[in-house]
Nucleic acid binder design. Structure first.
Lengths: 338, 338
DNA sequence: ACGGGTATTGACAACGTCGTCATAGAGTGA
DNA sequence: TCACTCTATGACGACGTTGTCAATACCCGT
């Protein structure tokens, strides 16, 4: 492998001078700089990060720990956000996946330490609480889409499920809906309770009675193997004589079943029943006809902001311990005014 | 940071002896080994990979280059397969995303080289041909879910779209379907033509005339921003007086629209029309009611096998230049016999 | 011509690890 | 007892890079 020394020889200077050129340090004549740069090009020299790290003990590398990839398919946009940030800021990303095993997680922390990474982004694919097996040594860590179970002060970035559900509920109320059905997400998910709370509170503040709301559980059980009641629940809800004029469901995936249930009963969307989802999982929300009005989870931004936050933590800046990113309401055509 | 030297001091031995213990080399007394191991535990010593690399010039690290993450949501299972392999075999994964920019891709290759990675897994999120900007230096590379545009001899691993579509077509034929509709995937995708060819060929071999097949284009244009005709095409197909008894669509996502089109026309699935998809994108195939019969893309296995193959290429074994993994037919309830 | 800067360059050590070689003690067979 | 082979251990250097410090060259004002 071509090293700084071969370049130095080729350019007829010392290795230190080559180092200066590479790192853009001052005190190099224009003429020397050019000669060195030519040698670098000619030899195809590429700096060796490992050697650099060994001197400076700064790896410029972040590690990502994920749990399950693709449980919520678009959540990988978090990773894309992180990567884009890393790319724009000259950082490298080391990535590993626990698959839910805590032994594996412990191994991963060790592996990260052996690479002397500067910090860890702890990313979960659905929002929940976790208990990182960080080991004894404290590496700067930022939680994305999750928060520590214990009351440790790890900074975290999460989506604002409450605000998203609030916006969706208001949207329906503003369009005259007064009987609204709600099909609940798996209660394991951190967002489930918040979305439901926002729905209840917003409806109540507006003056709706609890009897105007029809709230049912759509899914439960361990993620990836949950029991699924959505189709049955939606069918039942729409068969009531005093059926809701609008149905809000926990996420877009569940909404597929609500659509099918409604259509199987001969109901048209949105003429007979309006439907909103949550997540803006576009593979679904754009494939449904009419296209789905929903609240977009800011996955990409979670990643971007998380990386930015981790960077400032690593740099030693006192960071705000926690932050929440808004969900944007995406208006399409699955809701009509009544 | 605690190094091999601090451990050596603590254990009262030379640093070389500590090195021997760490690497499980012979010629260490049981008693010495224990003393060293105790010191390692007490000090929380973790080997420094960078220093190791600088000596041995073997990083035990693979790089992953992806194009767009999450265009086909479950395709990230490829990455999961790679990570699981890496984890099981003590390799580290460096990951970067081009976002489709070739300047960025060139930067990534440089970055990988500066980390002295042992090999690259070039992964695309939908199956297509690509032209890696590898630069001058040749790093062992395996293509996953794609193949080189030029006739370079880069080993690749791809799903067997042809066999998958063949199995699905046979499945319909075996169940008595003689008029079959086919809604085509975006022709940009490498699998699109293969799937269609398999459908045509299998139907012809069985004895169906071209007139028994109703083949229509469902999508076209750049990936991520394609024009979508699926709903309209499916509606039209199902309104023909001599409508197909079964519809095969390019992938599961398109199938959502076929379902909705059928239901909007008052047709029941599978009583009035049978439907099959492709991909086994479970967020969709399990959410649809009745659940969807489809062919599963072996994403996870592509990753696993790709990593394995890269490893053998790095080790210098002459590898088979290319390999194809089967798509498994997943039978659910969206097809009936006629 | 001289003292005091500033610009430019290089020699050398150090980072953490492991390969090479040397050393020393212990056992073995003649 | 002697030569020889093992076993167990350590001293030292090298990997590629950068930080420290010294050395040289040049310029300025006196």
């Amino acid at each position: 492998m071509v090293s700084i020394i071969s370049v130095a020889k080729a350019a007829g200077v010392s290795n230190k001078t080559v180092s200066r050129v590479i790192n853009g340090e001052p005190y190099v004549t224009e003429e020397t700089r050019e000669r060195v740069e030519k040698a670098i090009r000619d030899l195809g020299y590429i700096p060796n990060m490992a050697a650099r790290l060994i001197r400076s003990s700064r790896s410029n590398t972040f590690g990502i720990i994920t749990d399950y990839v693709s449980t919520t398919p678009y959540s990988v946009d978090i990773v894309r956000g992180i990567q884009d940030w890393a790319n724009a800021n000259g950082k490298t990303i080391l990535m590993a996946n626990t698959g839910g095993s805590s032994k594996r997680e412990a191994d991963i922390w060790k592996m990260f330490q052996s690479h002397r990474i500067d910090g860890v982004l702890y990313v979960t694919m659905y929002r929940r609480t976790v208990d990182p097996e960080a080991g004894d040594v404290r590496i700067p860590t930022v939680m994305i889409n999750c928060r520590p179970q214990t009351d440790e002060l790890l900074p975290s970035i999460e989506p604002d499920d409450y605000q998203g559900a609030q916006d969706l509920t208001r949207y329906l109320l503003d369009r005259g809906h007064r009987k609204i059905g709600y099909i609940r997400l798996n209660p394991i998910l951190l967002g489930a309770q918040l979305r439901l709370d926002a729905f209840r509170k917003t409806a109540a503040d507006f003056g709706l009675a609890e009897g105007d709301l029809s709230i049912r559980l759509g899914m439960e059980g361990p993620v990836g193997a949950e029991k699924n009641y959505v189709f049955a629940v939606a069918t039942e809800m729409l068969q009531q004589k005093d059926r809701p004029t609008a149905i809000m469901s926990g996420n877009d995936e569940m909404t597929i079943q609500v659509y099918i249930a409604a259509m199987a009963l001969g109901l048209r969307i949105p003429e007979d029943v309006s439907i909103v989802g949550f997540d803006d999982f576009r593979t679904v929300s754009l494939a449904l006809k009419p296209e789905l009005t929903t609240a977009a989870l800011p996955y990409y931004d979670l990643g971007l902001e998380g990386a930015e936050l981790l960077n400032s933590v690593v740099a030693g800046n006192k960071a705000p311990s926690s932050r929440v990113m808004p969900c944007k309401l995406v208006e399409r055509t699955s809701v009509r005014s009544v």
